[in-house]
Simulated assay, not measured.
Amino acid sequence: MKNLLDVEVLGTSFTIKADEDPEYLRQVVEYLSKKVDETKEAVSIKDPLKIAVLTGIVVVDELMREKHKTGAPMSAETALAMEKITNGMIDRLEQILES
């Protein structure tokens, strides 16, 4: 049975239709909304699409870091390097998207 969840993110409303538990879907959307708010606070960009793209990059970064944790151990140096690269990418994307 497909479950429906009404979503509103960055001024856009739509309905998600999925097999997952409605409570799980609500938690996913709540997490995304939190990340969107964090992104909006961290950058000077106001364009919702650009904020969504930057938020997606941040969330994918988190996912990749978690996946890496479950595999081979990561040294502190590697973790710092990954964080520096990610922050640099976000800074560059912000500059590109602002122009």
Rank of each mutant, 00 (worst) to 15 (best):
S44C: 09
N87F: 05
K34Y: 10
K67T: 08
E8P: 02
I85E: 14
M82I: 05
E23W: 05
E20S: 04
F14E: 04
M74K: 00
A18F: 04
L93C: 03
V58D: 11
M64N: 06
E77L: 11
T15Y: 02
V7D: 01
Y24I: 10
M1Q: 09
R92V: 15
T70N: 13
H68P: 01
T12M: 14
K40L: 11
A81T: 11
V29C: 00
E41D: 10
I85P: 11
T12V: 15
R92A: 13
M82Y: 06
A42P: 00
M1G: 13
H68V: 14
V28P: 00
G71A: 12
S75G: 01
L80T: 08
L32T: 14
V36F: 01
V58E: 14
D6I: 15
E94H: 00
P48N: 01
V36C: 00
P22G: 00
V60Q: 15
M89A: 04
A18I: 00
A79W: 07
L49G: 13
P22C: 02
I16N: 03
K50S: 06
I45A: 07
V58S: 08
T86E: 12
E20P: 06
L32Q: 14
K2G: 15
P73N: 12
P73W: 13
L49K: 14
E38N: 07
V28C: 10
V7K: 00
V58H: 12
L4N: 13
I96D: 06
I16S: 01
R65T: 15
S75Q: 07
K46H: 03
T12R: 15
Y31L: 15
A72K: 12
A42R: 02
K2M: 15
V9P: 02
K69T: 05
L97H: 02
L10Y: 00
A79P: 04
I51K: 02
S33A: 11
K40C: 06
E20C: 07
P73Y: 09
I90V: 05
I85W: 14
K35C: 01
D91Q: 09
P48H: 01
E77R: 05
K34R: 10
D61A: 04
L54M: 07
V29Y: 00
K50F: 06
E38P: 02
V59N: 04
G71S: 08
M1S: 12
T15Q: 08
T70L: 12
E30Q: 11
M89Q: 02
I96C: 15
A79G: 12
K17A: 13
L63S: 11
V59P: 06
I96F: 11
T86V: 07
T12I: 15
L80H: 07
R92P: 05
D6K: 11
T15A: 01
D91Y: 09
E94Y: 01
